[in-house]
């Protein structure tokens, strides 16, 4: 038995080394690096303890990035969750037409986020952008904006693109969940005279909880990891109005070369993601039904 496991280690070791060396060790080093003042260039550094975390707490730009990230993530989560569930219900039956719809809705996922970012940068252009032209042609000139140029608007404009691109993706998870609900439960609900809303509330929703958990957790993580879109569309501007945690840490590291400080921001990002996912799973587990 022992020798058998021994041979099996040979299959595992190459992947294990690569994964540990280029992913796990750097991730753990982030924790250590965030406690130093290393600039990444020289061999000299001092331990500074939690100084960077204190600095982050006082840094108005970090505060702004954190606030933006909350606005961005909440917008994305609410709309992506709601719309993907809504459209999943509309196209859940495996008809030919519905498969075509799903294929189209999923399509933006296949295109790189950088490309998507640039396409929307053009749609949002104040002068030649399709959005303002559309509003003008509808006689709604007063609504036309510089969608990425106005500080109060930029982060929401980007959030729209984020859920525009991924609603069709997470919708697939809901469709799988909906299709796995036994049909006889609806027949029972029907016989009992339940309205469509009640059938949804008491049959669909509780049984959909596992899918909902996945969609919620995935959308949350995805929104905190969003990076390419912002780099392409605004690079965090104007005046940090669309800076979120991931772009903040990138700029700190590679524009200002404050490696220790940037890794502290990275650790904060990691902790937020872990805490949020943990609570979402806890929350939705309580609502889970076994059938």
């Amino acid at each position: 038995m022992k020798t058998r496991n021994g041979t099996l280690w040979l299959f595992i070791i190459p992947g294990l080394i690569l994964y540990s060396f280029f992913f796990i060790i750097p991730a753990v080093s982030s924790l250590l690096l965030s406690l130093t003042n290393w600039d990444g260039m020289t061999y000299q550094f001092d331990w500074v303890g939690l100084k960077h975390y204190g600095d982050l707490a006082r840094d108005p730009v970090f505060g702004k990035a954190l606030g933006n990230n909350v606005k961005f993530s909440l917008t994305v989560i609410i709309f992506q969750f709601g719309l993907s569930l809504f459209f999943a219900i509309l196209v859940m039956k495996n008809t030919k037409l519905n498969v075509v719809y799903r294929t189209i809705f999923f399509f933006p996922t296949v295109v790189s986020s950088v490309s998507i970012g640039f396409i929307w940068m053009f749609v949002y252009d104040p002068n030649i952008g399709s959005l303002n032209l559309l509003l003008n042609s509808l006689g709604l000139e007063s609504l036309a904006r510089s969608w990425l140029g106005e500080p109060s608007l930029a982060i929401y404009s980007i959030a729209f693109v984020q859920f525009w691109g991924h609603t069709g993706q997470v919708m697939i998870i809901f469709i799988a969940g909906l299709q796995s609900i036994p049909k006889d439960l609806y027949e029972v609900a029907n016989i009992e005279g339940a309205s469509r809303w009640n059938a949804f509330r008491y049959v669909t929703w509780p049984l959909l909880a596992p899918s909902a958990t996945i969609v919620l957790a995935y959308t949350t993580i995805q929104s905190f990891k969003s990076f390419d879109l912002i780099i392409a569309m605004t690079d965090g501007g104007p005046n940090y109005a669309s800076e979120i945690l991931s772009t903040f840490m990138y700029h700190q590291a590679f524009t200002y070369f404050s490696f220790g400080y940037a890794t502290a921001a990275a650790v904060v990002l990691m902790l937020i993601i872990m805490v949020v996912t943990y609570f979402q799973f806890r929350l939705l587990k309580a609502d889970r039904v076994v059938y």
């Binding site: 496991n5 595992i12 992947g15 294990l16 994964y19 280029f22 992913f23 796990i24 060790i25 750097p26 991730a27 080093s29 982030s30 690096l33 990444g40 993580i221 905190f224 990891k225 990076f227 991931s246 840490m249 990138y250 590291a253 490696f259 940037a262 890794t263 990275a266 650790v267 990002l269 990691m270 993601i273 872990m274 996912t277």
Partner: peptide, 28 residues
Amino acid sequence: RTGAMLFAFFTLGMMIPSQTSIIPLFIL
């Protein structure tokens, strides 16, 4: 249990956002 522990170790990577490791990775 070795298999289960290795599986957990590998899939741990799915929880860690890639941005977290990029700075030490860059230096490495």
